[in-house]
Write a protein that binds this DNA or RNA. Sequence first.
DNA 1: GGGTTGACGTGCC
DNA 2: GGGCACGCCAACC
Length: 112
Amino acid sequence: MKKAEQSFFEAVWEVVAMIPSGKVTSYGAIAQYLSTPKAARMVGWAMNASLNAKLSIPAHRVVNRLGILSGKTHFGQIDLMETLLQNEGLIVVEDKIVNFKENFWDPSTELS
DNA sequence: GGGTTGACGTGCC
DNA sequence: GGGCACGCCAACC
């Protein structure tokens, strides 16, 4: 299921696509899963690229390490990301996921 | 090929 | 505890 020629973006998209509903993860966690923890910024960029590519991946389930919706401004509508998360059972207050730790989904742990 | 960018992370003040 | 500065690496121009 793994292609050798896929770029970072595609690898990130695969991981994000596997995030179960109601769960969230961080850019760093994804980057770490990809064995490139230093390239966490690329994950965010991949999200932006995915939106631009109109891919059907739950980019709203990816937040920064603090559980803050740092990328909400890229969803077209500011409240969209927050709305989607709350719709999945997450509690968002002040652009931050309150029960972030409880619903944190680490690909390195879940996917092994 | 070189410089800039970026939805981050960590460390330090 | 909040804010600032540096580092990181891949894609873009």
